[in-house]
């Protein structure tokens, strides 16, 4: 039986298993050079950035079941950090992305640390209040004088100085394509790391907290430390998302703190995808956000009402999510076909 538990698949089998996923990623990455319109490249870039927020939510809230509603705080803090570093210190956004993400992660860590000590819904309530406070501060005097108020802070976007040297018709494609590839590369790296962490011993410790925190503590798990490390890693991901988004889409305004803009799409993806599964929320992130854009062409402004109603129905019908289970079924079917192909060869 111990062999059954620890038996590792051979390298060939591992590669064979990864083939379908690699093919999907390769096609996805080839989309901009296959003639996809600038509008859709921009949509996919936004979807890639939202994937970071989705992964961040899934990594912490999906495993520990501590619903972190403070994601807009982290995203907004890093977005404003980019803008402020650029405006007051003259640091180009290219060099401000990582420092801004770090500043935001440290801020989140410092501010949320007391709320990590409380259990259950209290954490969510505390985390929800912070973005609202910050949005109020940004738009109120005297802070609004320095933080741009309702109009936000504007600055040259990522790679703008280089893009200006290009011919006008190449400029937009260059910016769109480079944003897409940067966001996709960061999203892929983040996905692989999140997947590894979520299914590591540390990931299972986070899951144990979600399933029975008292039992986890009494079983020897330092639950506070696990929550702290998990929360900080998750915050860093959200912070990178905020910094990337701000670097590519100036100006930064207080809208970034509104949960409907920053939190709801990713939270929906996590729930529909299957909390804590990583794969499910990642696929759901792309499915829901792309569907949302497609609906714009069909339904116009009605899309918000229809889309939200659809999500309510799906969440009510299957609160544990469904995308992950569909993915497993599809994966099994594809793997069987590939195995047959190899056996035939």
């Amino acid at each position: 039986m111990s062999k059954l538990v620890f038996a590792k698949p051979s390298k060939i089998k591992k590669v064979r298993k990864l083939l379908p996923s690699l093919a999907v990623v390769a096609i996805y990455l080839a989309l901009p050079i296959m003639g996809l319109s600038g509008f859709w490249i921009d949509v996919l870039t936004r979807v890639n950035i939202f994937l970071l927020i989705t992964l961040s939510l899934d990594l912490y809230s999906g495993t520990t079941l501590y619903l972190n509603l403070g994601v807009p705080f982290t995203v907004g803090a890093s977005a404003y950090a980019i803008a402020l570093l650029n405006r007051y210190l003259g640091i180009p956004v290219e060099y401000a992305i990582l420092p801004s993400a770090a500043i935001s992660a440290v801020l989140s860590f410092a501010i949320f640390i007391p709320s990590l000590r409380v259990r259950g819904a209290y954490f969510s309530i505390l985390s929800l209040l912070l973005p609202i406070i910050l949005a109020g501060l940004v738009t109120s005097q005297p802070f609004s004088l320095y933080l741009g108020g309702e109009g936000g802070i504007s600055y040259p976007p990522l790679f703008f100085s280089y893009a200006r040297t290009l011919p006008a018709r190449e400029r937009l494609f260059f910016l769109s394509a480079s944003y897409f590839y940067i966001s996709a590369a960061v999203a892929i790296v983040a996905y692989v790391i999140c997947y590894k962490v979520a299914y590591s011993d540390f990931g299972f410790m986070m899951r144990s907290i979600g399933q029975d925190e008292l039992l986890a503590e009494a079983s020897g798990i330092d639950t506070f430390r696990v929550k702290l490390v998990g929360f900080t890693a998750s915050s860093f991901l959200s912070a990178v998302a905020g910094a990337l988004y701000a670097a590519m889409r100036p100006p930064v305004t207080a809208d970034v703190f509104i949960p409907a803009n920053t939190l709801v799409p990713s939270l929906t993806a996590v729930i529909l995808g299957g909390m804590g599964t990583v794969v499910g929320p990642a696929i759901a992130n792309h499915l829901t956000l792309i569907t949302y854009e497609v609906l714009w062409g069909v339904l116009g402004r009605w899309r918000i009402i229809l889309y939200m109603c659809l999500l309510i129905v799906l969440v009510l019908l299957r609160p544990q999510g469904f995308v992950f289970y569909l993915y497993l079924r599809l994966k099994r079917a594809v793997s069987t076909k590939i195995s047959r192909l190899f056996e035939g060869a």
Binding site: V5, D201, F204, M205, R207, S208, Q211, D212, L215, A216, A218, S219, G220, I221, D222
Partner: peptide
Amino acid sequence: FQGMRVYPYLPVYYNVELSARS
């Protein structure tokens, strides 16, 4: 604990191994 107290969504192996890893 009094009553049955295990991690309901983790297999038996991980129910036990997590404590060992801690």
